[in-house]
Amino acid sequence: MDTVNKVCVFIRGAARTWNYTKQSILSTLNYYFQNPDFYFLTVDSGTVSDQSLSEDFKDSNLIHKKIIPIDAAILPFEGKRNTSTKWNDFSTNYFRMAWYDWHLGIVKREHEIQTGKRYNLIFYTRPDCFLGNLYQEPFNLKYSRITEQDIIGIIGERRAIRFGEVVTNDINYIAGARAANIFNCRYYDTKYTDGKSFQGTHGDHQNIAYYLYKNFITARHSEYPLPGGPMVRPNALEYLMTSTDNDHIKYQKLDTYVKQFLDLPSNEKIKLCKQYNIGTYDYQRFF
């Protein structure tokens, strides 16, 4: 089918609860985007291995997988870590994902050159999300304005974050071909971040919005259903594995665990990670 080769998915970030969310992510995306090409990048925290990823993607079109060493996962530049709402130096949360996207963006372009394939649409997500299959029918490129080879936009899911007219997102994005290539370059665009402090009340998220507008990329709320679900923290895994709730209910309940996890003491968080074979590096910033 023509559309099959025109969608690709970037899954990037710390693997975290990937071993428990992978089924929902892969089955939903394979159904909704009709077997897209997958690009996967994570950090060598021990949560996943090269072999386990090969097994995970055995029924999917995995084009590229990469597990970068922890040393390389530390930001590729000098900078001290600050909270996401204020930074006097560099916002690591923003640039870490930008660093991953830049890597995958290069691989994607090389793949396009080598195969002659041209993606129309790129979907971005993270390994620790629950993506419920809430869709009656697969995504249809024909009803998407972003299928045009223009910079139409990078669009968040329905849970988009708004700053007045500015729309951005924290977890899932979808972008037209050109918008994606520019979005993947954001890691070396520091116009709004070089040594500036207190950019906005929402820190990292607003940073993305600034970048999109600077590059004339439309950012807006999704006009149609897009896969996008809550993060799954280790304290939610027992619920996720035992629950018989439908996906709509799971979406709501999983959200409540996110805040609870952040409020746990560090030793409890580490205990949960060890209980579920999650590399503690994945959640290091919360300890």
């Binding site: 963006g105 050109r178 290539n181 370059c185």
Partner: peptide
């Protein structure tokens, strides 16, 4: 490099 990344588009 940002411009070149869009060349295929």
């Amino acid at each position: 490099v940002k411009w070149a990344s869009c060349a295929l588009n």
